[in-house]
Simulated scan of single mutants.
Amino acid sequence: MSDILREFCAENFTDVPAAIEAGARRIELCDNLAVGGTTPSLGVVEQTVAYAHENGARVMCMIRPRGGDFVYSDVELAMMETDIFSACEAEADGIVFGCLLGDEQQGYRLDEEACARLMTVAESAADAFELEHLDVTFHMAFDALPPEAQKPAIDALAELGVTRILTHGGVAGTPIMGNIDRLRELTEYAAGRLIILPGAGITYENVGEVVSGIGAPEAHGTKIVNIR
């Protein structure tokens, strides 16, 4: 169990010290979890990164300008570009985003152009602030894709250099244990090109069973460690 990398999903700094003390080794830092997480303020990022780095943990910064869907206008993408530079200036270890095209009625598909645009910005920002490495997580926008579009999305994101994909392996709200087979299938398909990071419904009580069933090296959640 100790070799599992536990990523704690934090809404601002409040629970970060307790989470790290309880065993979280990576923080996904967000604001406004009520809508699934949005970009935290620069001040929150700076203080969280400083604390985490002093205490043996890494920080992934959410880059999402609003709640709702993951289809972004050019203006919103420009906001995300600015926020990526801010996260890198604050010495975050990585960023988290997801971009789609389409709609709920017609179905969603990966916005490869927007993802490539943000990856290019991320590389430039990492170079500008002399970061040794910048992880990139494609978040649970992945779960809005129809199943038949998910493996092609893995191919495209791996080609772009994305580090990992955060996914529940099924429709939001479904029990995580019911999605183990799909998560294992996606992990095997990714074949080490990127990491399939399971999340949503994973707790400190079931994390061992989940990761062993999937063959996952990492797990994500707001209850991934026992802080209460």
Rank of each mutant, 00 (worst) to 15 (best):
L131M: 12
L131K: 04
L131A: 08
E132N: 10
H133Y: 14
L134E: 06
L134W: 08
V136E: 00
V136Y: 00
T137S: 03
A141S: 07
A141N: 02
D143E: 05
D143F: 01
A144T: 09
A144E: 13
P147L: 14
P147N: 06
A149W: 05
K151N: 11
A153L: 06
A153V: 14
I154K: 00
E159F: 04
G161R: 02
R164D: 06
R164T: 14
I165S: 02
I165Q: 02
H168G: 15
G170V: 14
G170D: 07
V171L: 13
A172C: 11
I176Q: 00
M177E: 15
N179P: 11
I180D: 01
I180T: 09
R182S: 15
L183W: 03
E185S: 12
L186K: 05
T187A: 06
T187W: 03
T187S: 04
E188N: 05
Y189D: 08
G192A: 12
G192T: 10
R193K: 09
L194W: 02
I195G: 00
I196A: 02
I196D: 01
G199N: 03
G201F: 05
G201T: 12
I202E: 02
I202G: 00
T203M: 04
T203Q: 00
Y204H: 14
E205D: 12
N206C: 09
V207Q: 05
G208R: 10
E209C: 02
V210R: 02
V210Q: 08
G213S: 04
G213E: 08
G215K: 07
A216E: 10
E218T: 09
K223P: 13
K223E: 10
K223V: 14
